[in-house]
Design a protein around this nucleic acid. Structure first.
Lengths: 171, 171
DNA sequence: GCCGGAAGTGATACACTGTAACAAAGCCGC
DNA sequence: GCGGCTTTGTTACAGTGTATCACTTCCGGC
């Protein structure tokens, strides 16, 4: 599914109907812009961690990223990765998948709503991100009914993505 | 909030409007019934773990439970607790809160829908459980639109529960 | 009652995930 | 250049969850 990176990057080569992942270049550009706006540093390490999250086939864990960035002569410790990830999450460029201890690049440029649904394919392991006004409004009603004031929420659905279902049917 | 156990147990002493937690005795009874139905063993350890989850002020982690059940002369290893928790989750008697690595007793007798919303109070640490037909139907639409077949989903909202908000306002 | 397989538990070790604390290096304004 | 801040490196450690194997308990059939 969309977690698989496009090795070539013309702007829109996907014809599938579901939500799609932003191009790596676009994410990079957004990161630089955000950092300029907020006057924070977009350092080499932070860029590399973001790159790693974007480029991974499947959403990586922090230790996967650390390993990926390490090479003979340069070791990147997990703690450094965690710090970079915290930074990137603060900016909304990366999301954490609580049910998997994994990280995904933010597929939308949603400066606003911050209310997303993660679709986790149990076959291919890919994670897609989408929004849902219906869920958002329904949840609002429910929370009001319960007398609960939300700060933020996570919604993660595990199942089978369209691509894997098709693949299974053909087999 | 409802995570605080009632030390005395008349059936319905709560006058609050939000969803409420089942009485310990009721959960116990449900557990025994379920085990009889499915012809599986409701052993002493499993009962104790369930008790611990039900009786805890705040949703405990597996290690908390292990510690609670251990005493001089009898040590319960975390691995045993995990096995019991897996068993109880299989039966739907306990839920895992992914964003907290904690466990809560299932507040409903929802043999069916299996679609619940967890309300996590960041002040008191209590976790309430409720259902939301609105969210359920909205999510169904969204998933269909995305071509995604769900197996199960988690929805966890962090914020402030009514009780804590009132307390803060009075202060 | 006994026996044999299945299920459950104990115990140890280990892998994975995340954080604390402090030192060293880099950036920036003055 | 100096002094303060942010970032990174390094080490150690806490917390969470699993693999493995041995031992016990349970349960159905004889």
């Amino acid at each position: 599914m969309s977690a698989a990176g496009h090795s070539h990057d013309h702007a829109h080569d996907h014809a599938h109907g579901h939500s799609c992942k932003a191009e790596p270049a676009a994410i990079l550009a957004r990161a630089e812009e955000l950092c300029r706006e907020r006057a924070v540093q977009f350092t080499a390490l932070r860029r590399e961690v973001l790159d790693a999250v974007v480029a991974s086939e499947k959403p990586p864990g922090a230790y996967d990223i650390a390993e990926r960035l390490s090479r003979p002569g340069r070791r990147v410790a997990p703690v450094s990765v965690y710090r970079a990830l915290d930074f990137l999450m603060e900016l909304g460029l990366v999301h954490r998948i609580a049910s998997r201890n994994a990280f995904v690049p933010c597929a939308h440029a949603h400066g606003a709503s911050e209310n997303v649904v993660f679709l986790i394919c149990r076959t291919c392991g890919g994670i897609d991100e989408t929004t849902s006004p219906e869920v958002e409004s329904g949840l609002g009603k429910t929370l009001k009914r319960a007398g609960f004031t939300p700060a933020h929420s996570i919604l993660e659905v595990e199942g089978d993505c369209g691509a894997c279902r098709d693949k299974a049917r053909r087999a």
